[in-house]
Nucleic acid binder design. Structure first.
Length: 631
DNA sequence: TTTAGGG
DNA sequence: CCCTAAA
């Protein structure tokens, strides 16, 4: 069931059992396990256990309400405990409770899922299944279930789960409508809302694809990959879905059951539980799943609930706090969090756009903003291949940074410099379909990347090359010219959207070039001659030989010089320089700084600009500065 | 395009 | 250095 992208985790491992109900007496114990990025299971640490412990306190007090589920979902999507069955002999009832709690969470999440589905109901064919079962009922029944389970557990230190095979009668209980929903979730998801007992078939990660119709398979495909498919080939669909679920390309096309990341034959279900893989922790068995719950998509709004977060433990633990928040508030909180995560920034127009984008999406009721925001955060935190799926499923495609060019594996959506405007559907599909679809383009892509990776003679070629197709750049070195062509090719091929001049992609950063004293002197000289602010003039006349210095650079440098005069000079007067002196950095000669200061004061206060007048005298000073032995 | 200014 | 807004 679990879709693991990069560093996430699979969800659970469970022995196949078909106990229909809680009456079962099969001894089951739960073990706390952390799922590492590579899919291996590691025994949970004390901290992990503690993290979940406080859930027990809340458990009976306030069960998550529908308003709460947004948060629950958030929690669930990040760090999940899911039941794991194994043959350990002893169990801790506390942790069992945790597991139970998770069950509730699962059910609640499902409720939420369906509710949001209902809210944003775009397809008339969908039914609000949640109506059939008021949340209270579900929760209550869950509670009953819990009690029974706990009793069982406390007496025999065993636990019976209510796991059902996905093809079992449990599923059949669902009416046609809910069935549809369930089917859509032939993949990582919590399901079985309308039944009083949580359907763990999905949680267990077992999926029967054989019984699905083409339409259902297509739904599952969409849920899995986040995009539509028109393929009607059942086998193909099955393969794709399973591949998507199992991250494997070696998949049989029929009779397959996705189980614990493994594809097993339908009949092989009863076979060997890979106990060996499960490190036994003294007490119990719970599988701690981080980062990886994918919610089944339903008619396009799937991505809204698919909610990946990759944050460190600290960040995740924050999420455990179950603060009852209304969805609206939740949005606000999350938004605020986003703001705090990002560097504080003045709300420029663009920023406002970004924010309002979220709002817009919210207003659609599709709840796509969380996912989008997630993508934002995630991208900033940790590049993950999965981002593409997210983005794709959102219908919003994030551009990637330069490292993209080497190949798909290094595509890193870079949101903060995100392309605005319409999503590049083509690009995503291109990415998704992989090299086989458009191998030519891919090769070109790579080739360009490699070519551009070579630094041009002035060190700016990379950047320029990328900018060229988008802006008009008069300076063109050879490599740039070639690159322009190719990149434009790419643009038309890959990004079918017309390249707006403004749609610059901050793919690369200009090669940093330390300012030499000579340059500084020229700059100061130029300022003295033409006046501060005439940067383009200074550049033309004084920096003609430094093609890599733009007028903006000059302006920035001058600003820095001004700052230096305001800080460095007094400090030098004080005598002691508290900071370590980096020998590789040549301090700007005080004489020059002094002149900068003079120029600045003169030009800023003087109002009427008379810089040229000062030129001769300053020039001589510069000579002095040069001769003062700083270089 | 250039300049000014925040990040 | 980057990114924008404004001129």
């Amino acid at each position: 069931m679990e879709v693991d992208d990069s560093n996430g985790a699979l969800v659970n491992k469970s022995e196949g059992n078909d106990f229909e109900n809680k009456g079962s007496s099969d001894p089951v114990v739960y073990q706390l396990v952390r799922v590492e990025g590579d899919g291996t299971l590691v025994p949970a640490t004390e901290d992990d256990v503690l993290q979940f412990e406080h859930f027990l306190d809340d458990e009976k007090v306030d069960l998550p309400s529908i308003e709460d589920v947004g948060h629950v979902e958030e929690f669930f999507s990040n760090d999940c405990i899911l039941p794991e069955k194994s043959d350990l002999e002893d169990g801790c009832s506390k942790l069992r409770s945790i597991e139970i709690y998770t069950q509730k969470l699962g059910a609640d999440i499902e409720e939420n899922r369906i509710q949001s589905l209902d809210d944003s109901l775009s397809s008339p064919s969908r039914c609000g299944v949640a109506h059939g079962h008021p949340p209270d009922k579900v929760i209550t029944e869950q509670g009953d279930n819990n009690i029974a389970q706990q009793d069982n557990a406390s007496t025999e230190t065993t636990k019976s789960t209510v796991l059902n095979d996905c093809c079992s009668a449990e599923k059949d209980k669902a009416d046609a409508c809910s069935r549809h929903v369930d089917d859509t979730s032939t993949e990582p998801s919590v399901s079985g809302v309308n039944s009083s007992v949580p359907d763990f078939s999905i949680l267990r990660g077992e999926v029967c694809l054989d019984d699905l119709t083409i339409r259902e398979l297509q739904d599952a495909f969409r849920a899995t990959f986040g995009r539509q498919t028109t393929v009607k080939d059942k086998i193909w669909l099955k393969r794709r879905i399973i591949m998507g679920l199992a991250n494997s390309y070696d998949v049989p096309s029929s009779g397959c059951v996705v189980k614990d990341y493994k594809i097993v034959g339908k009949d092989a279900k009863q076979q060997i539980p890979n106990i060996g893989e499960i490190p036994k922790v003294g007490l119990q068995a719970v599988s701690l799943v981080r980062d990886q719950v994918m919610y089944p998509g339903n008619e396009g709004d799937s991505p809204s609930s698919s909610y990946y977060q990759s944050e460190d433990q600290q960040g995740s633990s924050k999420r455990f706090k179950r603060v009852p928040v209304h969805n609206g508030e939740l949005q606000g909180n999350l938004l605020a969090r986003q703001c705090t995560n990002k560097r504080a920034r003045k709300p420029t127009k663009r920023y406002i756009e970004e924010l309002s984008d979220i709002e817009v999406h919210d207003s659609t009721g599709k709840l796509s903003s969380p996912a989008k925001r997630t993508a934002h955060e995630e991208v900033l935190l940790k590049p993950r291949i999965s981002s593409f799926h997210e983005a794709e499923s959102l219908g919003t495609i994030y551009p990637t940074r330069k490292d993209t060019l080497g190949g798909f594996s290094v595509h890193v959506p870079y949101v903060s410099r995100m392309r605005r405007g319409r999503p590049r559907k083509d690009f995503i599909s291109f990415v998704d379909k992989g090299p086989s679809v458009k191998p030519n383009t891919n090769r070109v892509h790579t080739a360009i990347g490699m070519m551009l990776a070579e630094e041009g003679e002035d060190g700016n070629s990379i950047r320029k090359a990328y900018e060229v197709p988008l802006t008009v750049n008069s300076e063109t070195v050879h490599i740039e010219a070639v690159a322009r062509k190719e990149v434009q090719n790419l643009q038309t091929k890959v990004y079918s959207a017309p390249a707006k001049p403004k749609a610059k992609q901050g793919l690369t950063r200009k090669h940093h070039r330390a300012w030499t004293l000579c340059e500084v002197v020229k700059l100061v000289d130029g300022v003295a001659r033409y006046g501060a602010g005439k940067w383009s003039e200074i550049r033309k006349l004084s920096f003609s030989s430094y093609s890599y210095r733009t007028s903006v650079d000059l302006k920035d440098k001058w600003r820095n010089l001004i700052r230096a005069t305001q800080t460095q000079l007094p400090a030098q007067k004080d005598g002691g320089c508290p900071r370590k002196i980096n020998p590789s950095i040549i301090p700007i000669p005080p004489s020059i700084l002094l002149r900068v200061k003079e120029l600045n004061e003169l030009q800023s206060q003087g109002g009427s600009f008379t810089a040229p007048v000062k030129f001769p005298g300053q020039s001589s000073k510069v000579v002095q500065g040069k001769g003062s032995g700083f270089l």
